[in-house]
Design a protein around this nucleic acid. Structure first.
Lengths: 218, 218, 218, 218
DNA sequence: ATGTAAGCGAGACGGTACGTCACGTCTTCAC
DNA sequence: GTGAAGACGTGACGTACCGTCTCGCTTACAT
């Protein structure tokens, strides 16, 4: 979620989109959702998100932009929320590389580079707060967000911590949630909440150094 | 914003509400926006927020609940967003006490106690992501949010840093934005983004210790 | 209904339109349906009726043509049917002149002249079967149609019969419904059901003569 | 049309359904419209007509009720209208017996007995105005209706008139259309337009007497 | 007996319209 | 001249059918 909304958002291997509706009961000559239509909708959604944002985005608008009937959208997703969530999850989950530089600070530095690049993408910056706001209200969304978080950002951070412990850079047995908060919180706060214009040159390096110090102090 | 949505949300001295629209200084036999109507609307807004959340909340619903015409609302605020923003700012700005415990870690610990109590309030948890999502789109909102942030959370954090520098606990001349991100980020991430069930007993203490270490390492 | 959809369909004294919804409870400064909007809708309805007929006519189309929101239409009439029925009744009821030529045959002749002119109007020819078809299903419509019939065509026919009885041209005490069927049936059948191209010159005269003979034979 | 919708609506010899679309003379390994499917649709149409009426009846509903694909319906008829028209014509055309009582009045009396029984059938009462309303818009429908009329009701009436002329009861050379209008109009008006509750005992007899008088007066 | 063309059910497709809701603006009347 | 009431045009909601169009069967002719 936080990370990963990077390069291949449009890659065809996004095969994970919309698995909740299996389709295909195959008893007889069954009609099947056309993949080109699905793809047109997906594209239109990202364009609409960029253009008007989640809140102003309407199913009608998506269908119009995709050159598709509203029914084609409703046939695939139960609501605007499920639609966006499904698409975004598909993108977010395509994990990010586990860094392995030999030091905690180096690993963090690498993680931050990748993450900050991802968060700088305007669509990410727009959508994330929207989904988060929805999550505050809809438990189904909340859970999907958690899942995306855990499988993306958090799993990498966990790996970094485990490596640091193995190396002896960190104590063993510390509260894992706390370590993840220390790692992910500051950059998110800066990029999404404070939204400063752009990060100074030395920012990520200093952040990695400080965070490493924090983790070692646990 | 982040802090301060504490006790006296309903205190009558919230006279700062809606200062941007000056309106009617009683030039002559002039009619003036009636304060009782304004108050009824304010109350209705908080009730609606609690009942249906920001997204489902409608101006029509507020007016209905307040026993007031839609006009009365629109005469005072330009939109749902300004309305909520105004009310929330009024509440958020009522500063929080500047801690002074004699040590960086102690000051942070105190700040976190207050902040985490504020963020635990369900209305805060609901509204903050909503406003943030809007801010990502509407620069006017964004600025108001920044202002509330600066005058609330950030100013306190600044004070803590300044005291630490004066005490010799931190180097002078470090990137101030970075220090603020390190201070505010982790708790926000935990409380608003990850939304874990509740913080373990030792969490805040450990967080303060780690953050102090991070700041000293800058 | 059958008659009267003649000249002044657009006369302003059509004040009887939409009396079933009284409006005006006047408790305070109440908003009121704007007459210019109502008039625009009425005009649009007649235009749509002429253009696409009752069946293909849609509320959306009416609103579009009238330059009005759909709500404005729904605020006034519960359905397409009530809308058309209301408008048509208003027009139909503006009675037709009671003929008085001194003879049964002469009176019938005059009635037929007026009626056939009215039925020749293309909108009448289109709408009447539509409304009748609806009436076969919706008792509310059926009743309104009956009323329009009674107050229009039938009342004139009754008058003609009464005069003939007074003159001694007809027996007294005959089944009144039967007389009305004999008078109104043939021309309606011809104009609406059979829809022959146009009536031969002598048709109405012969019809009047034959019908007079039928009535006298009762 | 007007008459004949009597007993054997479901007789299997209604082979006349859909003759306008000749379809497949077996050029090669040809498939042929399955008669059992056709029959299932026919049955479903009558059921739907009874259940919801012509206006609310939908092709989808018919196919659903018949347990058949929409395609199967469209393969046989071009539209709801053609479907109903075809079915109804098939029923209507099964002529009615030519009466021959030896007198004009007697013949009319017999015709009216049969006709009024047919019109009393609720499905007839529902469908006829619907088709007529369509005919007012669609010339193809109009022609089919004319044809059904001519081959049903009108041909019988013509026969009655011819016999009366032969007998010397009527003048020769009168406008034939007028005689048909006089014969068919009143009962139709009464049964379909006015829709009075039910006919009084003496009604048909009186009607036949009066109509005979009218015809003789031509 | 086999090959093949067409009928079959299913249902996806782009559309249009439905009747409802809330939007933010505007107008009317009462206090 | 504020304030309630609410009508106004707008536009989206989610649903129902429209008539067209593939899909994979299955069927029954013509070879």
């Amino acid at each position: 979620m936080l990370v990963g909304m990077t390069s291949n958002a449009d890659a065809p291997e996004t095969q994970s989109a919309r698995p909740p509706q299996p389709r295909r009961r195959a008893p007889a000559g069954a009609a099947v959702l056309r993949e080109d239509v699905t793809e047109a909708i997906r594209t239109a959604v990202f364009e609409e998100l960029a253009a008007v944002g989640y809140g102003r985005m309407s199913i009608e608008g998506i269908a119009r932009r995709a050159g598709v009937g509203k029914t084609a959208v409703y046939r695939r997703w139960r609501s605007k929320l499920h639609l966006v969530l499904d698409l975004v999850s598909a993108v977010a989950v395509q994990g990010l590389p586990m860094p392995d530089t030999g030091s905690l600070e180096g690993d963090l530095r690498l993680l931050y580079e990748v993450t900050s690049r991802a968060l700088r993408h305007p669509v990410a910056g727009q959508i994330i707060p929207d989904l988060q706001a929805e999550a505050a209200r809809n438990p189904e969304i909340a859970e999907a967000m958690q899942k995306a978080l855990r499988e993306g950002q958090q799993s990498v951070a966990s790996g970094i911590v485990a490596a640091a412990v193995a190396r002896g850079e960190m104590r063993d047995g510390v509260d894992e949630d706390l370590t993840l908060d220390l790692i992910s919180g500051p950059l998110y706060w800066r990029a999404v909440v404070v939204r400063g214009p752009k990060l100074p040159k030395e920012y990520l390096a200093s952040l990695a150094r400080a965070t490493a110090a924090a983790l070692k102090a646990l």
